[in-house]
Amino acid sequence: MAHTWLPPAEYIATLPRATAYACLYFTDTQGRPFQLRTTYETGLWHSPGGNMDPGETPWETAVRECREETGLVFEGEPRLLATHFISDRGDHWPANTIGFYFDGGELTDAQIASVVLDPEEHSEYRLLTLAAWEREMTPSAFRRLAEIDGARRTGTTLYVESAGDH
């Protein structure tokens, strides 16, 4: 059977669509995860991060978004903790989403005190134990947080799938 090779633009048009985001996972010196509450979806908590801009790598996105969302300038090296895949959510978000969680390390008390949030994006930040986060987050978001925290603690990297949720 002979193959017909399509020009790159035509071939790419046949592939599944995907957006990408990246974030930094921080804890304080007591190991409590640092999370931001969004203003655009009530009750949603997440690590500092956001969608990639054209021409950015996931690492550049994570560092830029952290600076924009918290005022913290991260100068560490990239260490991937997890890749997160979210399937196409139909009309709500008609594309797959791929996320990258990088290890931001431990925040000092001085760094935490210096956090400045953009009130149009985030209403607050918190540092809570995993048990306390379980009461604050949706089950799927908490499961992902706990898995990412476990990857950080064990030095492993993980792959997480979510079906149509955050």
Rank of each mutant, 00 (worst) to 15 (best):
I86W: 06
D118N: 13
R153V: 03
E60A: 06
A20W: 01
G99F: 00
S87D: 13
L80K: 13
P48A: 04
L24I: 02
N51D: 13
G43I: 07
A82D: 00
A110Y: 04
D118C: 06
M52I: 11
E60Y: 00
F142I: 01
S47M: 14
L15K: 11
D88M: 02
D91S: 07
E147M: 11
T83Y: 05
R153Y: 03
P16I: 12
S47R: 12
Y25A: 14
G105V: 06
A62C: 03
T157A: 11
P119E: 07
E124S: 05
Y125T: 04
E41D: 11
A82S: 01
Q30N: 08
I98W: 10
V115I: 15
A132W: 08
T57S: 09
G55M: 13
L81N: 11
A62R: 03
G71H: 08
W133I: 02
D91Y: 04
E41L: 14
F142E: 01
R153K: 13
R89H: 08
N51F: 11
S123E: 15
R67W: 00
I86H: 07
Q111K: 06
R37T: 08
E136M: 08
T29V: 06
A18L: 09
R64M: 07
H46R: 10
G90M: 06
L127K: 02
E136C: 01
R64F: 07
F34S: 00
L24Q: 01
T97N: 10
L127W: 05
I148A: 09
P119I: 03
R67C: 09
L117N: 02
P54S: 15
N51M: 12
L15W: 09
E124N: 05
R135H: 14
P33T: 10
S123F: 11
D118P: 05
T29W: 01
E120W: 05
R126E: 14
L81A: 11
D28A: 02
L117C: 03
N51Q: 12
R67V: 04
A146L: 02
L128M: 11
V116L: 12
R79C: 02
T129E: 14
L80W: 04
E121D: 13
D28I: 03
L81W: 03
V116H: 12
E77G: 01
F102K: 05
G71K: 06
D53F: 10
F74G: 02
Y125L: 10
T42K: 13
R64T: 05
R32I: 00
L128H: 12
P94H: 13
D91Q: 08
R89G: 09
S123M: 10
R144S: 13
R152C: 08
H46T: 07
D53E: 15
W133N: 03
G49V: 05
N51H: 09
F74P: 00
I112L: 15
R64W: 07
A132V: 09
F85L: 09
R143Q: 14
E69L: 01
R153M: 08
T27G: 10
L80H: 07
D149K: 04
E68M: 09
A146G: 01
S123P: 06
T61C: 12
T29G: 03
G90N: 08
Y159G: 02
Y101Q: 13
T38N: 11
P16Q: 14
D103P: 02
E136I: 02
I12L: 15
E134D: 09
Y125D: 06
